[in-house]
Amino acid sequence: MTQALFDARNIARSYGGVTALNNVSFAVFEGEIVGLIGPNGSGKTTLFNCLLGQLRADGGTVRLRGRDVTGWRANALARAGLGRTFQLLQVFGGLSVRDNLIVAAQEHIATLARRLFAPRTLGLDEQVEAALERFRLTALGDAPAASLSYGQQKLLDLAMALMAEPDIVFLDEPAGGVTPSMLDEIGEILLTLNRVTGTTFAIIEHNMDFIMELSDRVVVLAEGEVLTSGTPEEVRGDERVIEAYLGG
């Protein structure tokens, strides 16, 4: 049996007596794109926050490549090879696009003291230029990130999550607020990354067409529990899923 790249077991979390997550377990295997779906309030974002060091879970374990990373801080998880984006846009508006990309990778290079005396770009120039090109931001490299359009910031956000070449990337609604043409572009980029560099993704998404198209496997959350999981086809035909969405 192959070991899961990312393995969450029995994650539980409640807010003042209200159960938000009830023993949620799910695993992501190397090279997979896993979609995480569920109606509003099903606990998707709480689950992400618990897994990614933003919120302390009440119980459960999280493993990354078999290593217990339960309760680790976000920065430690990032350095262990886990990247992420947030639901709301999170770029550093005051920094240039280039600096946004460098800062996304710099902590993975050299030691703290070495970084103080290292050249400004830390030898990341090639990687930065490649990212700029891939996300079609080359012309905007020196512009402050705040001056970019929403769509461009969305791309930059994604590019930053990928800069450190993480083993697995968690995306929180990558399709949110994006135009249809940009949506295709994002989908294509994710697929390419997955096929070519083998990057593994776990994605929360509301846009069903997008996530069904993209995912190898879909996990459905409802009322803080895993309702079912399977291939997009299996999930699509599952009556319980339809029921959950129609408001059972």
């Binding site: 990614l52 060091g53 933003q54 801080r73 976000a74 920065n75 990032a78 350095r79 990247g83 992420r84 947030f86 999170q90 770029v91 550093f92 508006g93 005051g94 920094l95 600096d99 460098i102 800062v103 996304a104 990778a105 710099q106 902590e107 993975h108 970084r115 103080l116 005396f117 290292a118 400004r120 830390l122 930053m160 999550a161 800069m163 450190a164």
Partner: peptide, 25 residues
């Protein structure tokens, strides 16, 4: 101007995002 300065600026702008990129708060 060093990578430290960039990390400081990132923390000031958005500590949550900075941490998610491996920057130790």
């Amino acid at each position: 101007r060093s990578p430290w300065g960039r990390a400081f600026a990132a923390l000031r702008d958005n500590p949550e995002r900075a941490a998610s990129l491996g920057i130790s708060i």
